[in-house]
Protein backbone atom coordinates (compact mmCIF):
# COMPACT_ATOMS: atom_id res chain seq x y z
CA UNK A 1 0.00 0.00 0.00
CA UNK A 2 2.72 2.49 1.04
CA UNK A 3 4.87 1.57 -1.96
CA UNK A 4 1.96 1.80 -4.39
CA UNK A 5 0.96 5.19 -2.98
CA UNK A 6 4.43 6.69 -3.36
CA UNK A 7 4.93 5.26 -6.86
CA UNK A 8 1.48 6.50 -7.90
CA UNK A 9 2.24 10.05 -6.68
CA UNK A 10 5.57 10.14 -8.51
CA UNK A 11 3.99 8.64 -11.62
CA UNK A 12 1.20 11.24 -11.62
CA UNK A 13 3.53 14.22 -11.23
CA UNK A 14 5.83 12.82 -13.94
CA UNK A 15 2.91 12.51 -16.36
CA UNK A 16 1.65 15.97 -15.40
CA UNK A 17 5.00 17.69 -16.00
CA UNK A 18 5.92 15.75 -19.16
CA UNK A 19 3.96 18.00 -21.64
CA UNK A 20 5.61 21.15 -20.26
CA UNK A 21 9.06 19.57 -20.22
CA UNK A 22 8.62 18.40 -23.83
CA UNK A 23 8.07 21.98 -25.09
CA UNK A 24 11.52 23.16 -24.03
CA UNK A 25 13.27 19.83 -24.60
CA UNK A 26 16.68 19.93 -26.31
CA UNK A 27 17.10 16.17 -26.52
CA UNK A 28 14.97 13.02 -26.57
CA UNK A 29 13.70 11.34 -23.40
CA UNK A 30 15.91 8.30 -24.02
CA UNK A 31 19.01 10.48 -24.21
CA UNK A 32 17.95 12.37 -21.07
CA UNK A 33 17.50 9.08 -19.19
CA UNK A 34 20.95 7.95 -20.32
CA UNK A 35 22.46 11.22 -19.02
CA UNK A 36 20.61 10.78 -15.74
CA UNK A 37 22.01 7.25 -15.38
CA UNK A 38 25.50 8.62 -16.06
CA UNK A 39 25.09 11.18 -13.29
CA UNK A 40 23.75 8.57 -10.88
CA UNK A 41 26.63 6.28 -11.81
CA UNK A 42 29.07 9.07 -11.12
CA UNK A 43 27.36 9.65 -7.76
CA UNK A 44 27.76 5.95 -6.89
CA UNK A 45 31.46 6.12 -7.80
CA UNK A 46 31.91 9.21 -5.60
CA UNK A 47 30.03 7.48 -2.78
CA UNK A 48 32.32 4.43 -2.87
CA UNK A 49 35.35 6.71 -3.12
CA UNK A 50 34.24 8.85 -0.17
CA UNK A 51 33.46 5.83 2.01
CA UNK A 52 36.73 4.09 1.10
CA UNK A 53 38.84 7.19 1.74
CA UNK A 54 36.94 7.92 4.97
CA UNK A 55 37.49 4.34 6.14
CA UNK A 56 41.22 4.55 5.43
CA UNK A 57 41.56 7.99 7.09
CA UNK A 58 39.78 6.75 10.21
CA UNK A 59 42.15 3.78 10.46
CA UNK A 60 45.21 5.97 9.85
CA UNK A 61 44.01 8.43 12.51
CA UNK A 62 43.72 5.56 14.99
CA UNK A 63 47.22 4.33 14.21
CA UNK A 64 49.11 7.59 13.81
CA UNK A 65 47.38 10.07 16.11
CA UNK A 66 46.32 7.39 18.60
CA UNK A 67 42.99 9.19 18.61
CA UNK A 68 39.68 7.48 18.03
CA UNK A 69 37.66 8.11 14.88
CA UNK A 70 34.60 5.90 14.57
CA UNK A 71 34.29 3.94 11.33
CA UNK A 72 30.55 4.54 11.63
CA UNK A 73 31.18 8.19 10.66
CA UNK A 74 31.39 6.91 7.10
CA UNK A 75 27.80 5.76 7.42
CA UNK A 76 26.50 9.32 7.77
CA UNK A 77 23.67 10.03 5.35
CA UNK A 78 25.16 13.41 4.39
CA UNK A 79 27.88 11.53 2.51
CA UNK A 80 25.22 10.32 0.07
CA UNK A 81 23.95 13.88 -0.51
CA UNK A 82 27.45 15.29 -0.91
CA UNK A 83 28.43 12.49 -3.31
CA UNK A 84 25.37 13.37 -5.42
CA UNK A 85 26.45 17.02 -5.37
CA UNK A 86 29.97 16.07 -6.47
CA UNK A 87 28.50 14.04 -9.34
CA UNK A 88 26.24 16.91 -10.46
CA UNK A 89 29.11 19.41 -10.48
CA UNK A 90 31.42 17.08 -12.43
CA UNK A 91 28.65 16.20 -14.88
CA UNK A 92 27.80 19.84 -15.55
CA UNK A 93 31.49 20.65 -15.75
CA UNK A 94 31.83 18.16 -18.59
CA UNK A 95 28.71 19.40 -20.43
CA UNK A 96 29.25 21.71 -23.43
CA UNK A 97 28.63 25.39 -22.60
CA UNK A 98 25.04 26.46 -23.35
CA UNK A 99 24.80 29.11 -26.10
Amino acid sequence: METAFILAVVGLTSLGVAPFARRGARRGLRSAAARALETIGLGVVFLFLNVAVGFCLALVARLVARGFVSLYLNDDVTIVALSALQALVVQWWREPEAR
Binding site: T3, L7, A34, A36, L37, E38, I40, G41, L42, V44
Partner: peptide
Amino acid sequence: GRGALRGIGATGVALFAAFAFT
Protein backbone atom coordinates in the same frame (compact mmCIF):
# COMPACT_ATOMS: atom_id res chain seq x y z
CA GLY B 1 33.60 5.68 -19.65
CA ARG B 2 30.09 6.98 -20.26
CA GLY B 3 28.80 3.47 -20.90
CA ALA B 4 30.38 2.22 -17.68
CA LEU B 5 28.83 5.08 -15.71
CA ARG B 6 25.41 4.30 -17.25
CA GLY B 7 25.82 0.66 -16.20
CA ILE B 8 26.75 1.64 -12.64
CA GLY B 9 23.87 4.13 -12.57
CA ALA B 10 21.38 1.56 -13.83
CA THR B 11 22.61 -0.95 -11.26
CA GLY B 12 22.28 1.71 -8.54
CA VAL B 13 18.72 2.53 -9.56
CA ALA B 14 17.79 -1.17 -9.76
CA LEU B 15 19.25 -1.86 -6.30
CA PHE B 16 17.52 1.21 -4.87
CA ALA B 17 14.18 0.05 -6.29
CA ALA B 18 14.71 -3.52 -5.08
CA PHE B 19 15.64 -2.46 -1.55
CA ALA B 20 13.02 0.30 -1.20
CA PHE B 21 10.02 -1.14 -3.03
CA THR B 22 10.26 -4.91 -2.53
